[in-house]
Design a protein around this nucleic acid. Structure first.
Lengths: 408, 408
DNA sequence: TGTATTTTGTTCCGTGGATATACAATATGT
DNA sequence: ACATATTGTATATCCACGGAACAAAATACA
């Protein structure tokens, strides 16, 4: 039951039905490919005639293509349809404190090439270097003509509309216009987004073999910081200034440990990689300056090492993992109480210890969730091997092709 | 950029354009009434011919009516159109711990009759008594034929789809099927909803002279409990089990005072009426049982009395108000960081002290909000005189008439 | 007073697109 | 060879927007 915005609506024209149905067709094909025209018609509950014209239009637009003829028990054999994703390319970029990742992938998020280099913190130099690398990458893979855009994600707040990075504390960037600079340097459309939000988008748009893909979920990324992307009814929650979803900075304790954001007791201050390591090494976060913490972060001992130690019987490491699991669960419970999503995706280094801490996490959720049904909210750990942030950056460019048309 | 749900979509048919445009027309008329056909056509950017047919169809459906002819500087005088709200009735019910309120109102939320009685906690008796009162009320005002439904709101979690009250701690109701029982007793459609969510709906649908009515906002109701209704892009956030929006139970401090919900340190435990009074009287909430707290709640000294004392120079009362203001602000800041709404509505007894605590609230928000823009999120105190919860209950029945059709 | 002008609301026809139905194409079973 | 089943196309019909003409109603002005 949505209210029509009387200040900014779109009336239906003669071609609105077609816009809607053609987009539905594209999505049904995407979800069930390979699929025949007749099957599409059945799934859409329209006549084969309509399905046929929709399909021919989509072929004309280069969005889908006819593949092999399929097999049927009786009657004429169907010609299978596929969404054109393999020869449509995206450059995705993930900027992190230590390194920057550049990937060339197709519209399905399949990796074609990957390049990693040390992050340059001076924006001018960074853009220049990045531009050169992108141009070379496209040339080497002969992809200049087929690349449709650049998606860039950062850990921090981004105004998606303007493409400005509002505040990325780990990178030390504030009010930086990355989008227009990179667009000018490369001559391609650039989309910039917060990393966790982008991951949520990729979870929604690029998860191919996901039959019951949730329409409402939260994607929680635990890393140097804690980012959350919330999707409600198939739409990413962005908010007025595009800074919604900062669940990493909801308080667990107003008098708790100091957080990178300047406040005390944020969730992030309890479960970020730095917080996990601090728990193990006994660092006192409250008294350390963010600057000195960065040095610690730069040290070679990572959360993955800590998890390894926990597995090999280091009881202090195990205790750090479990304590983190508890706070992770308490935060997840709060998200459940606030958003009540269909499911929750978890990502980040600490999730490699999921088997060790799952029980603790679920206990904490059960402790604070308000209903019994809420405690049963499915938790899904996403694999860290597939570069979720880069897939997210790719989704920024690929998603608009499939999005529902704005109506009413 | 919404994703189409491939498991549950609606293709556009021949009549979809008409459905969309007729609903847009209804809303534009609602917002700008009185308005002529020609003016409607201009605002919708369609031809007068289309506007005319839409209008005539809406008149045929009894949704709008032609009023007086207007005035124009030159040319033929326009005939004004109005949305039919004055002779379409709703019975709205607000169940609270001490009293239950029944209102008969029109579709604009205008009060026609109001009845107040002591809440009966036995469900069977309550429904029976309520049914009798509703029947009598409708008969007295000769409104049986014109009443289109009953909206009922409670302080607690409600599954809107099934009409079950999941848990209303202050009333002591758990898993109670109010909707079907009341529907059976009265023979009318009944909608049940959480009070704060309903208030958010009424803020969206029944705020007549609100030119820049926000499409995304949070409605915060501070009373015996703390309820929040979140609206995103004109749609109420309900969640999978319809228990989204329980911001009252997000933690400010995991080791904080005990809350009605059984957990510790919920926002509600810091700013509910009971918390406010406890602050003044020095009650130790952590050690009291919910049962004994209920007795305190029943006592005659209310938050309104406390605010009066604060105004008359009672420094302890003033301190309680300001301390509450600080926690109110800290919670609001968190909501802003999570949802980033266009604006925030505030309601509840303590808001009568708004002038006393506004500075403190804003200070707390500035302290914890993550961006400067976020600290400037408009706060609007809604008047407590107009029975916001009853208006909310009325909105449950009135809103579907105006809601956007589901498409794609 | 009569005519031009302006604005409102209606009517009519053209066009886009869903819907229904018929039909050609293609494969299988008997 | 023929009935049957299934896919995909072609054609006529109906619904709704889009544009233009026109009638209706009121004012301005000579």
């Amino acid at each position: 039951m949505r209210k029509i915005n009387t200040c900014d609506f779109r009336v239906a024209t003669r071609s609105t039905s077609r816009e809607i149905n053609s987009r539905i067709a594209l999505n049904v094909i995407h979800e069930h490919q390979p699929i025949s025209r007749a099957d599409l018609a059945r799934r859409m509950k329209v006549t084969r005639g309509v399905a046929s014209t929709l399909v021919n239009e989509l072929i004309g637009q280069g969005l889908i293509y006819e593949g092999a003829t399929g097999d049927a028990a009786r009657g004429r054999k169907p010609t299978f349809l596929h969404v054109r994703t393999r020869d449509r390319f995206v450059v995705s970029i993930d900027v992190r404190f230590s390194r920057t990742y550049i990937m060339l992938s197709d519209f399905a998020g399949r990796q074609i090439a990957l390049e990693i280099f040390d992050t340059i913190f001076d924006i001018g130099d960074f853009i220049k270097n990045l531009g050169n690398r992108i141009r070379r990458l496209l040339k080497v893979h002969n992809a200049e003509a087929r690349c449709e855009g650049i998606g860039l994600v950062v850990p921090g707040m981004v105004d998606y509309r303007t493409g400005h990075i509002l505040n990325a504390p780990t990178l030390g960037w504030r009010e930086v216009d990355v989008r227009d600079k990179l667009a000018a340097s490369t001559g391609m459309p650039v989309h910039v987004e917060n990393a966790a939000k982008a991951c949520a988008l990729s979870q929604m748009w690029l998860s191919n073999n996901n039959p019951t893909s949730a329409q409402s979920f939260a994607y929680i990324s635990v890393s140097d910081g804690v980012g959350v992307g919330v999707v409600v009814n198939g739409e990413l929650l962005r908010g007025r200034d595009h800074i919604a979803g900062e669940f990493g900075h909801m308080p667990l304790n107003l008098d708790g440990p100091r957080c990178m954001c300047g406040n005390n007791g944020c969730w992030e201050a309890y479960i970020s990689n730095l917080a996990i390591l601090s728990r193990y090494f006994g660092w006192n976060l409250s008294k350390r300056s963010p600057k000195r913490l960065k040095d610690a972060e730069r040290s070679s001992f990572t959360v993955l090492d800590l998890v390894a130690r926990a597995r090999s019987g280091d009881s202090k490491a195990m205790a750090a993992v479990l304590a983190t699991g508890r706070f992770l669960g308490l935060g997840i419970a709060t998200i459940i109480n606030l958003v009540n999503p269909d499911c929750i995706y978890l990502a980040g280094e600490i999730t490699t210890a999921w088997d060790l801490m799952e029980d603790t996490v679920r206990e904490a959720i059960a402790e604070r969730a308000l209903t019994e049904a809420a405690t049963r909210t499915p938790l899904r750990v996403t694999s860290t091997q597939e570069y979720p942030r880069l897939r997210g950056a790719a989704a920024l460019i690929a998603a608009p092709t499939f999005a529902a048309p704005r109506v009413a």
